[in-house]
């Protein structure tokens, strides 16, 4: 009995969570432009989407942003994580607090503060400002996914490498880095996902003329209903879902790789 209730409960949660997405995906295949009527199955919105040059442009911008911001924030975040773990206890707690704040902060606050910062320093709004913003909000995610790996390191391994004649630089790349690599990689994926997914911060830090997919959808939907946008949203949803699944199975995959 309790089991049945449990299942119903879980089913309800999933329905509430995923029903809106499901509706969206169903509508993206709807021949009729109406949201209330099913006019038959079609791929036409998807094909139209691919032939819309402004959307394709936004896609390229989104991907460039995601790749660049993920790479740069992974680089900075990994170094930061290493530095933070070697701090003394008090300083470490403080640094972790500072790192966590941007993640807990409302995105709109982060977005507006970044916008004000760019205005203050007279930075021209455009691709660069979005990139800087994305790097900023991605770094904490990288730190958080690299940190546990560093804590698991056997501190003697680094010294053992130097003991065997490796310079500090070599010791790091041959011994420490391979051990934290799974964390670095999942940090990279996480940053990539967050960047693709972001709307609010991008909205406040993009200038006129530059659009990512999410800001594109927003401006189009404001003009009127266009089922192409359903198709686009569905694609983004699926992409992010796949990335998230990847991230979640990855930390374990480090272990599996060892066994083979």
């Amino acid at each position: 009995m309790a089991n049945v209730l449990k299942r119903i409960y879980i089913a309800l949660i999933f329905i509430f969570l995923y029903a809106p997405m499901l509706v969206l995906i169903v509508l993206s295949f709807n021949k009729s432009k109406s949201r209330a009527k099913w006019g038959g199955f079609t791929f036409q919105w998807y094909t139209k989407l691919l032939s819309d040059s402004s959307i394709m442009e936004a896609l390229v911008t989104t991907l460039m942003l995601a790749v660049l911001s993920a790479l740069i924030s992974t680089f900075i975040g990994t170094i930061a994580a290493i530095a933070i773990t070697s701090l003394k206890k008090g300083a470490r707690t403080l640094m972790m607090g500072i790192t966590n704040i941007p993640m807990l902060n409302a995105e709109i606050v982060t977005g507006i503060s970044l916008m004000l910062l760019f205005i203050f320093f007279n930075v021209k709004f455009g691709f660069t400002t979005i990139l800087l913003a994305h790097i900023t909000f991605n770094i904490p995610y990288v730190i958080l996914s690299v940190m546990p790996r560093i804590k698991q390191l056997n501190p003697s391994a680094y010294e053992a490498a130097m003991d065997l004649g490796a310079s500090p630089f070599k010791a790091f790349f041959k011994v420490v880095f391979p051990d934290i690599l799974p964390g670095v990689f999942s940090g990279l994926l996480m940053a990539f996902t967050m960047s693709i997914d972001d709307f609010i911060i991008t909205h406040f830090t993009k200038g006129a003329g530059v659009d990512t997919l999410s800001t594109k959808i927003y401006s189009q939907v404001r003009k009127g209903i266009d089922p192409k946008m359903y198709a686009l949203s569905s694609l983004i949803f699926v992409t992010v879902l796949v990335l998230l699944i990847l991230i979640n199975i990855l930390p374990g995959s480090g272990k599996k790789a060892k066994e083979k």
Binding site: S156, D163, A166
Partner: peptide, 28 residues
């Protein structure tokens, strides 16, 4: 340390976990 002609066996083995035994021994 890396320029000294001595080698250490650490209290907590400190083998390189992502390398096999042969690679561990070959490291130096």
């Amino acid at each position: 340390a890396y320029k000294r002609q001595l080698n250490t066996v650490f209290q907590k083995y400190a083998l390189f976990t992502h390398m096999n035994i042969a690679e561990n021994i070959a490291f130096g």
